[in-house]
Amino acid sequence: MDTAHEAPIITFSGVSKFYGDFQVLKNIDFSARAGERIVICGPSGSGKSTLIRCINGLEAHQSGTITVDGIRLGADAASTRKVRSEVGMVFQQFNLFPHLTVIENLMLGPVRARGMSRPAARDLAMRYLNRVRIPEQAEKYPRQLSGGQQQRVAIARSLCMEPRIMLFDEPTSALDPEMINEVLDVMVELAGTGMTMIVVTHEMGFARKVADRMVFMDHGEIVEVAPPAEFFTAPKSRRCQDFLQKILNH
């Protein structure tokens, strides 16, 4: 499929963000097409989380413009909510709602934000729990599940909003090694459905398998953007070479 001429679904142009005097994002220009899978990597503190959190308005930016699915972020609260209904987000720490059962975690957004009836939301939630392969955990509370199961619930919770874009911020970094694959498998499967995905991760095996483009960030800048084949074999910048050395040879 030739997507090169499609209008991008996410556009950053000249985006800067500051914490006081400290500039976290430096004049970021970046865009992603619908259905594209982008993996972002870079050293700790380089601004990866900040960048993807700007996409659903969890962080505000101070200059430049961010457009998501035709909606410009930061204009007003209503447009931010509109964007959030199109963009799912999965966090490193899962952030499930501990006082709600798994199924209630999944139903909350559809019922309260999309105005679905409870029975319809329950059906939808069961469908996505099946998709992440834990339908039998529906009535349990999050703390009764393993980390890998919790993260899959978190993915299902986002999918219940039927978003066009999914953001992942180091979704496997808080997991024990033996649970990483069950989460990555779900993500690979999701990539196969044509979902637009922006993933911050250091799982380079996953990146190779799934990414259309790799983005390398350092000190608040996008230093390099390339397809994985090129990115891993012939990184152009010195900083990117150093980084890859470190994470591939540890």
Binding site: L58, R84, A113, S158
Partner: peptide
Amino acid sequence: IAKGQYEAAYSVSLGYGD
């Protein structure tokens, strides 16, 4: 209550009140 709880709620498009 941890900040992540707000972020997760906002991410499923809940407003401040909900």
